[in-house]
């Protein structure tokens, strides 16, 4: 129906709501023989991706709270020992390398499944799981050493913030490794394909996120 008809129907334009402007009426099917309702196209961000993005948002607020507390203590103290004094910074540099490289292998795996290359996909996934496990192993070893040397969570603010921040990140890596392990098992059974890669994709989003958090935490806690 042309715009004029609504006005012809005796309705002053001002009386038509902003929610039902004459233009809108024209677009409405059945009202004036217009086209069928424009079905909303596939949402730009799928449910699963969006859910993961929101989880990441929430996690960011969680780490922001912890980091905020760390910053308060770190910069509120007149003296704060450098990370080099207590922490095995050298090994952790290497470990950081492992974690960042695992993000790269994860990305490679995603590339492969998008290209429907099952064999390299599974291989890259396996390497990612391996790297993640190495990261956790090194961290665990580091912690044992630190506790042995007397840096426990209750030994002053330094230990408390260290174990809380790095521990929370470690738990996230652990969760991510376990999840990725499940994805790896599914991948070996051929559950994923070019079209059906969402399960890997959201897992990879989380993996990148965990790596990104480390990129923030490592300089903050170890290098200062």
């Amino acid at each position: 129906m042309p715009r004029g008809s609504a006005l012809a129907a005796g309705l002053p334009a001002s009386q038509l709501s902003t929610h039902e402007t004459p233009e809108a009426l024209v677009a409405v099917p059945g009202y004036g023989g217009g086209p069928p309702p424009p079905s909303i196209p596939q949402p730009p961000v799928s449910n699963a991706r969006m859910g993961m993005l929101m989880l990441i948002g929430a996690e960011t607020m969680f780490f922001a709270g912890l980091i905020g507390a760390y910053v308060v203590f770190r910069f509120g103290s007149p003296v704060w020992p450098s990370g080099h004094l207590y922490l095995p910074v050298g090994i952790t540099w290497v470990n950081t390398g492992f974690l960042l490289f695992s993000c790269y292998t994860m990305w490679k795996a995603m590339r492969c499944i998008k290209a429907d290359q099952q064999q390299p996909f599974v291989r890259w996934l396996a390497i990612t799981v391996l790297l993640g496990s190495i990261f956790l192993g090194v961290q665990g070893f580091e912690w044992v050493q630190l506790v042995h040397d007397g840096l426990t969570i209750s030994a002053g603010m330094y230990g408390a913030t260290f174990y809380t921040l790095i521990g929370c990140h470690g738990l996230h890596v652990l969760a991510a490794v376990l999840w990725l392990g499940i994805v790896l098992l599914q991948a070996r059974r051929g559950k994923f394909s070019q079209q059906r890669a969402i399960g890997v994709e959201i897992c990879s989003m989380y993996w990148y996120y965990v790596g990104a958090v480390w990129v923030v935490l490592f300089p903050l806690v170890y290098l200062n």
Binding site: A58, T60, M61, G65, L66
Partner: peptide, 9 residues
């Protein structure tokens, strides 16, 4: 989504 994680921390 954004407030509760701060409480969690």
């Amino acid at each position: 989504l954004l407030a509760l994680p701060v409480l969690t921390a």
